[in-house]
Computed example of a mutant assay.
Amino acid sequence: MSLLKYLARATLLLTLLLSSGPLLAQSLRIAAASDLRFALDEIVALWQQQQPDTQVQVIYGSSGKLTTQIINGAPFDLLFAADIAFAEQLHERGLTSSEPQVHALGRIVLWSNTLDAGQLSLAQLSDPAIRRIAIAQPAHAPYGLRAQQALQAAGVWEAVEPKLVFAENIAHAAQMAQSGAAQVGIIAMSLAMAPGLAEHPYLLIDDALHSPLLQGYVITRRAADKPQAQAFVAFIESPEVHAIMRRYGFLLPGEQP
């Protein structure tokens, strides 16, 4: 290869590397609890209207599994968990570049595609006519754990446990109830108020029956030098985002149920 061709190729490679830097810097990869699917999709769309140069990818799942992925090196810039305890777990391990912050309070509801869930109670779930009840897996999904707590507090856990079908996350539990794979689901209020489910009534479960669903976010150590991550979490506290969160049934810090 001639010296001129070598220098031309080297110059082209250097140009590509330099030009790709800003593009890589202007991207965000977010791990988010499934209860945020509809609300966060709207929030990201609004963000990208204001920040068109920043590409945002959101991966939804159970808070526990997403946290484990980050611990194992998954390249996420932010974690939005349904239980702030998972964000705190990352912080305690030194895997964050910010303090965990509570941004909302989630609620759980009874929902059904075939029954009038608004007229049901937790006690009625023991009725033999109700054969399958969907909840998220309590071992790694905060909404599943709160469903278990509520059923135990209502004194019906032993009666309904044989009927339970466990979903990977709360969106999967909602899908099971919507498809008929389960007659009833204990799901996130934010999903019960989303398109495709909102036309059916739901029963809001008394929050005294379970520990609070404190939604929390944190910036990971990977995003320590990403100003876009800081800008996004600042955007989360904006009035526009608060309006979206309220529309999906979330309470904001300091608001009473």
Rank of each mutant, 00 (worst) to 15 (best):
P75E: 05
F76K: 00
D77L: 02
D77A: 07
D77M: 07
L78R: 01
L79R: 03
D83F: 04
D83S: 15
I84Q: 01
A87C: 13
E88D: 12
E88R: 15
Q89D: 14
Q89H: 14
Q89G: 04
Q89P: 01
H91W: 08
R93N: 06
R93G: 02
L95E: 10
L95K: 15
T96D: 07
S97P: 05
S98D: 00
E99Q: 09
E99R: 10
Q101H: 10
Q101A: 03
V102F: 00
A104L: 09
L105F: 13
L105V: 05
L105R: 08
G106P: 15
V109Y: 05
V109S: 04
L110M: 12
L110F: 08
L110R: 09
S112Y: 08
N113M: 03
L115A: 14
D116L: 05
D116M: 01
G118T: 12
Q119S: 15
L120D: 07
S121M: 07
S121K: 09
S121G: 05
L122S: 04
L122F: 07
Q124K: 15
Q124M: 15
L125H: 09
D127M: 02
P128V: 07
A129P: 04
R131L: 06
A136F: 13
P138C: 06
A139L: 09
H140A: 08
H140N: 11
H140G: 06
A141Y: 13
A141V: 05
P142D: 07
Y143I: 06
G144S: 11
L145W: 06
R146A: 15
A150Y: 13
L151K: 04
Q152C: 00
A154E: 11
A154F: 07
E158N: 06
E158L: 05
V160Y: 11
P162Q: 10
K163V: 12
L164C: 14
E168N: 13
I170H: 05
H172Q: 12
M176T: 05
M176F: 15
A177M: 03
G180N: 09
A181P: 02
V184F: 10
I187F: 01
M189Y: 03
S190E: 12
S190V: 15
L191F: 12
L191C: 13
M193Q: 15
M193N: 11
M193I: 01
A194M: 02
A194Y: 00
P195N: 12
P195T: 05
G196E: 03
E199V: 11
